[in-house]
Amino acid sequence: MHDAPTPPPAPEPLDGRAELSEFLRTRRARLQPEDVGLPNFGRHRRVPGLRREELAQLAGVSVAYYTRLEQGNGRNVSGEVLDAIARALRLTDAEHSHLTHLAKPKHHKKKRPARPQHARPALHHLMDAMDSIPAYVVGRRSDILAWNRMAAALFGDWAALPAEERNWARICFLHPGARELFVDWEQKASDMVSFLRMEAGCFPNDPLLSALVGELSVKSEEFRSLWATHDVREKGHGVKRMHHPLVGELTLAYETLRLPDDHDQSLVTYHAEPDSASAQALRLLASWGADATRAGTAGTGS
């Protein structure tokens, strides 16, 4: 008789105080006095970017107050002070939102449902009707929840992956094929880390997210480097260049449509400029063969 294996320990939640501290420190480090209209006295500065006292002056708060905030103590900070600091740091809208989530998590944390996410049947039908448009539904932590046959033809046979591996961050950093498919893989990787950073700010106590970040940090040096930048941004649309093994070069525009009844899920579509070489390549993929069709059918039924 053998003893039952000891289950692995539950992943530690992300440290919200450390996240707030590092985010503010890295945002401050990217600014120089001349960027914000301050005189730069002396060429030798002990820290990169603005000093704490300079940032506090710009935000209209005391140095002691800002220092406590940058040390991760944001419990009693007001929205007005966060707005002032965001302006002083020249934060984007996404960065401002991230700062608010980090500093006031109790006011922004959503309760995670215990059950796994699933795409609604109507979304499966909608994607199946897009017979010339690669489309998929992505959920929390960049999990891929459903897709159509064109997405399978473009991105690969996701149906062949175990359910826990159907995750864009894992695919991007741990599957060699992603580096070959995306001509601008570095940008794709940066976008994925920025997305996970936003998730971590909203849901620091999500154990599955903590486990994903831990796994990628161990297995990918590129992920560790990008994670350390604390960069966040939202990209609802854009252009991706790809090199497909069957049809060659493609330049496709993507749109990310957040679902109104579940903001943790988004429908992502890719399309080519009409009458372009990429449009012709998509038509070739649409008629690729029965194997891709079966993979897409299996995927949208997962």
Rank of each mutant, 00 (worst) to 15 (best):
L58K: 10
V61S: 12
C172W: 03
S287A: 08
K240V: 01
E221R: 07
H237V: 02
G42F: 14
R51L: 13
H2E: 15
D131R: 12
M192P: 02
R149I: 01
G214N: 15
T229H: 09
L212T: 03
D128I: 02
L174D: 06
R197P: 02
L38V: 11
L284P: 03
A129S: 14
R140A: 15
D3E: 14
T67V: 12
S210N: 07
F173C: 01
G301R: 15
P5Q: 14
G296W: 09
K104Q: 15
A200T: 13
R51I: 11
L267A: 00
L20N: 11
K240M: 03
H44I: 09
V47Y: 05
D264H: 11
L257A: 04
L154I: 09
R28A: 11
L82H: 10
H230I: 04
P13K: 10
L226A: 10
L123W: 09
E34N: 09
S220M: 10
S142Y: 04
T6G: 05
L58T: 10
Y136C: 05
G238H: 04
L284S: 03
E234Q: 06
A146M: 11
D206L: 02
I171G: 11
P245T: 01
A64V: 13
H125V: 06
H107P: 03
C202V: 08
E70F: 15
L123S: 05
E215H: 12
H125F: 03
A295G: 05
P121F: 15
